[in-house]
Amino acid sequence: MAGRFAKTPHVARKEIAESIARGIFGLMSAAMILPLVLIVGYLVVRAWPVLSWEFLLDVPKRGMTDGGIWPAFVGTLYLVGISLLVSTPIGVLAAIYLNEYAKDNWFNRLVNLAVINLAGVPSIVHALFGLGAFVYAARFGYSILSASLTLAIMTLPVIIASTREALASVPMAFREACWNVGATRWQTVRAVVLPNSISGILTGVILQVSRAAGETAPVMFTGAVFFKAVERGDLFPYGLTDQCMALSMHLYTLATQVPNVKEALPYATAVVLLGSVLLVNATAIFVRIWLRNRKKW
């Protein structure tokens, strides 16, 4: 076969280098999958003995060494829900400002930098802020309100970033067409931009839920407590100024603070937390894929 196009040693060498590079980089990528699968798998196996609906609905018993996680689960729902009520409007409006109104000047570059930095502030610093600002300065005390507001500010960059992306994906020509029939800027946003990006914004809200549900440090010092007595299966156990339990903090407590806890209990708590978060994220991913396939431009 050594015809006119036989490989010179140089070409053969570079092809070998090529496959080695491809192999190494491929393995490095595959290495991402491994921890995800192993972690989820291991946690589920260890949690299996106590994993049931009963575990979700029951309250902690015998000094938290037995029983379920209901108060913590509901507490997380409260914290996430209230933080969402605060941060979604602000975040969406901020994204509309940045994408639809803001001119490219020094001030708006500063706003952009602020968004980037807000995303980079460590969670424990958010906790300190929540403690200083909401618990003490605003006198909300250690409460669901303080914790939710802290979470809201912490997750604001998530909703701003994904809403901006959704808004930016609406073609400029749509807006121009609308302006040309005499619509104002806001009318354009309302009639053209928002309807065409609403599912993208929704994805952002979903991601925000997952982020807020998993955070521990910001709620730990602003309103979440180790234990709070709650009726089994009670959906409305907390008031706005009450302290509450939270799933993420409950996991931390079980793993580090409670002696003689039933073996599978922290694992099961971790599985519920991780499962909820991954489920929420998977939903966001599906919405996004469905959206992309449906898009006509």
């Binding site: 946690l43 969670s123 997952s210 998993g214 955070e215 521990t216 937390l273």
Partner: peptide
Amino acid sequence: LLSAIPSVV
């Protein structure tokens, strides 16, 4: 999904 795993987990 990997980046969504909460830090406490």
